[in-house]
Each structure stands twice: as structure tokens, then as C-alpha cells.
Design a protein around this nucleic acid. Sequence first.
RNA 1: GCGCGGAUGGUCUAGUGGUAGGACCUGAGCCUUCCAAGCUCAUGGCCCGGGUUCAAAUCCCGGUCCGCGCACCA
Length: 597
Amino acid sequence: MSEDGQSAATESTDETSEPTSGKLVELAKRRGYFFQSSGAYGGVGGFYTFGPQGAALKGNVEDAWRDRFAVAEGNMEIDAPTIMPEPVFEASGHLDGFDDMLIECPDCGTSSRADHLVEDNTDYEDAESLPIPEVEEVIAEYELVCPECGAGLADVAVENFNLMFDTNIGPGDADPGYLRPETAQGIFVEFPRLKEYARNQLPFGVTQIGRAYRNEISPRRSIIRTREFTQAELEYFVDPEEDEPDLESVADVAVTLYPASEQNAEDGSEIETTIGEAVAEGIIGDEWVAYFLGVAKPWYESVGVDMDRFRFRQHLAGERAHYAADCWDAESEIDGNWIEMAGFAYRGDYDLSKHGDHSGDRFTVFKQYDEPQTVERATVDPDMSYLGPEFGGAAQAIVDELEALAARDRDAFDGETVTIDLEGETHEIPLEKTGFAVEEETIAGEHVTPHVVEPSFGVDRLVYTVLHHAYREDEVDGEERTYLDLEPEVAPTFVGVFPLQNDAELEATADEIVADLREAGLSVTEDDSGNIGRRYRRQDEVGTPFCVTVDYETIENPETTVTVRERDTTSQKRLPIDELAETLAAIRTGDLAFEDL
RNA sequence: GCGCGGAUGGUCUAGUGGUAGGACCUGAGCCUUCCAAGCUCAUGGCCCGGGUUCAAAUCCCGGUCCGCGCACCA
């Protein structure tokens, strides 16, 4: 976590320019946000447990995402299994595409892609499709060497490494399955049924919040890169020819963009613009992607991402999947490094077409024309009682050719006989034996494969960013203080309730208040230990926005008020107990501000 | 997976070939009429497995985990 070099790459924006990751990870461990899993058994790499505060924060973030991307957009949410059978991943391309052949140099230890080595140094073009023993043979035959140190790689084993966790479905290994490497496939696979729920009307969107698994070679940076993580994904299915996003509603959203052209430029930099302008100037190539960027930005802000440390970065041509026309990431800055929090991709019909090809089902939507179209169609209905005896085994081939010919060249049926060329031989078929006819057909519509726009969010990285961007250090009355400036909407604990001192009467009143607030649906913690300042600091450190203190005025005053203390400013106001729950609930939903009390 | 560095109560850390000390936290009590105060007491630890040794938390080897760099990140 060195400061040099890294922080120079980006202009840090505020008082937290000093790296805080170390301190944050320590706080997260101590206060129950997240920590290494299975610690009692030595820990396991790339797996983290969200503690009591972390699970609540993550849940709140997921709820906020659901409100915005499912409920507010009118999309439907599903919950698919995390394990799916092998054919799903054959179709999706993960079985091949996620599979790397690695070969490790015995001398210098460098790992290289064995298939790339072969392709670069031999005439083989698609080494990835070769079985491993054959790749090993080729390496030995061509005496390929390590690209780093030049050591010979003949007789070095090629390891197959697939980033997917595999398992067996049921007993034995006849039915392999995989833990999904992204939640998206669970949506795509169910498309034929989901489109029924959408009553075959495009556009429609399906969301899913769930776990995905990748057996990363090297998990890093606490919960930034783990082997099990949570995604919140929206697959939005559109008719590419007709559907258009409501760009107007997000046109004025101000965004920081880092387009590919700027990344490639010598002195490129981020661009401050609006969604509307970026589309007008062609910076964002796809309007759907632009729309969801416009939805995402204010949402990120609402859950507490610092907009001075946030940008959308366009994928460079090289990092884009081949089917993606345009792709942007949402990135946040953590100690001078930009990390990817979400990807917004226009995936075309790639996914649905693949599943349509590989499965027996139809991954299309029937699109009705405004007016039914009448077309003339030439058909044949061959007389098999003639063709069979006449041509024997070739009869079926002749039928196929007649059908093809009718579609291709109606004029061929103008004469007394029809001429068929079949494997060099010419056959004359009497016209009346072909059953040729031109019919009028009414076509009500067509089957179209929808295109997919995919906003895909990493929830863990977002939670990490929210914590990191909320981390604050300041001084209160000369004492150092650490607090988390979490948005009330996502803060895991919303209010702490304290009796000012050890006093049965104060404690009894505090108990009643706690019960009231909990009944109002607020997340409440009660604390009567130590002096009042310590209790305030405790809540500051987990980011609890408000604390209520029951003092002697509360039990003496007929109006029975308590103090409400706000976390960031530590300022206090007195509120009547009977208005407390209602007022705090309104603050949490954003309908009321503490300053206005 | 490779290289470098690291691992001591919940957290942060001191330390030596002779079985560990501090600070903070936490709990109990006293005190206390609003911001980590004070006093008393208490709980709690050498990452795991081998080896060397009379003796290993310390030295050696292997592993696990963490951080960083490389590679990887459809």
C-alpha cells in the first residue's frame, strides 16, 4: 500500500487522500463488517464472511439496488440456482473460454498460456481446441522454450485450469455441474419461460441478486477480489429495431467519463459532461448503455459513493468481449487505484442465440406486425407414389432439391417438366408430379431474438467502496475520532439509545424507547456501559447516524423529551418521545432532515 | 502459480533458545447530569505440521493465510 507512484496517477480529492485501506480493514474486522472466513482453521483464501454490521449494510445496499433497478424500472426479479449443468456452460462459452492451459517454466517459474505459445511459434491456429496431451507433444516436437528465460519446455506438464468450480450432480460423475461464474446465465437459461411472464412484450428486464463463484488464481485486496461474491445483475431484453430508452429522463445527469480515446491518448483525461451530451457527441455509442449509466450514477451517489472518486470508463477494444458493441465500467477510486464496481455492456443477441442453438428451446419473442403481411409463396407437394418407384433411394434428395428450387427460382416450374440437377445427373420431373403451387400466405409477425443490455454490479466491491468513502477522522473537543459517514438509508444500525447514567429510571425509559423504535422498523442498538462519550464513539465507528439519550430532563419534564445527536456534526436537539419514532423514520427515508428539526 | 515481505489476546504491538509484556477494546464494580476521563478487579494470545535441541513462540523445512509485484481477471 505504498503512496508513491499510485497516488500520483490520480488527483486525490479530499482529506482522505492518505491510504485508509489498512485502517478500514482493521475496523471492519474489529467492528463486524467483514473478515477472513474459517479463521479457526487457518483461513481460506478468497472467502470472506460479512459480520453483523457488514451483512446488514450489504442487505441494505441490495435493497436499495432492488428498489431502483427492479421495482422502479418495472423489471422482474428471479432467484436461480448457483449450480447449473455442464451444457449450460458449453452454450455460454464458459467451459472453453474460462479454460486456460498453463505451462510453468521449471527454471524461472513463469506461467505461460500453453495454447498461446503453440499458436505463436507453430502453424497451429486454434491450439485451444487441442487436447492437452497433443499440446504437450507439439511443444516437445517444436522444442518450444520459455518466453521469459528461454529454458526448454519439452516434457513439462501442461495444466488445465478452469476458473469455474466444478461438482457432480447426484451420485457418480456422469452428470457434471458447475457453480455459476456469473448470475447472468441463470436468467438467460430461463428466458423461454420468463418471456411468457412478460407476455411476449419487449422490452422487459429481469434482475437477480445472488452469488457467483470463480476459482481465482490469486484473490487479492480483501473483499475486492474473492472466489465467492455477490452480483446484482439486470438483463434488459430489447427489440433492437424498435425499442428506445427514455434518454430524456437521464439526459441532464452529470457524469465523469473516461472514454477509450482518452485512455489511448498521450495526455488523455476524464471528461465532465452529461449523459445527453455524451450521446449527442457519440462518446457513448449505445443509447441503452447511456440510459443505464444515467440511472446508475445518482443511485451510486444515493448509497454513499463519493462522486469525486467515481467515473465511468469505457472498455478498450482489446478488453471488450467480441460480441459487445460497447462496454463501460463504473469505477471508484480507493487509495489512488481505480476499481471496477459494475459493467454496462450491450451484448447483442449473443447469449440468447447461443442458448437457442444449444438447447432445444426457442429463445426468441414473436413480434407481431402492425399489419399482417400477405406474401406469395411457391410450394411443392411432390407425388411420392411416382417419385419413389421412379428414383428409388434418390427420391428424398430430389424432394429436397424441388423445395429449394421452388423457393429459389419459381420460373423453373414454368414448363411441362422441371429440370433437377443432382450430383451431376439431370432429371426431368413432370410438373404435375411436383405439386407445385403458388399460395398466398398471411404472416402476422416474426420471431426475433432480443438484444440484451446488461448492467452488472459487484455488490461486495460496492460495499467496500461505500465503507472506504465513508471513512472519516476528525476531532471532537480535542479528542481524535473515527467515524463512518454512511448514508442513513444503508447504515446497518440506524439509532443507538442510551440512558445517560446507570439509573434504573433512565434505563426503564430507554427500554421503552428502544421497543417503540424497533416497532417502527428501525434498526436499534441499546448501550448502557461506560460513560456517554464512549458510547457515542462506539456508534460513530460503525456509522450509526443518530443516538438518542435519555437524561434527567426526560423523566422530570412533563413533555418528556430526549436528546437526538447527529453523528457527523455531533450536534444535539431535543425531541418529544412520542414524535421520536415517526421523525427518525422520516429522516431515514430522506423525507426529513436533521437540520430542519 | 512464481518472487519479496509478514503472521504474538478481540484489535494494535514489545520481546528473548529456558513456556510471554504493554496499550486499546471487552466484562464486573466504584465514580459520573452528554462526547473514548479516573480508580479497582477480571477474561483473553505466540498461524498449522514436522525437524534440530535437555528445552522452540524464537532456529530450520513444509504448509496455510495476509500484503505487494509478476501472471491471471471469458
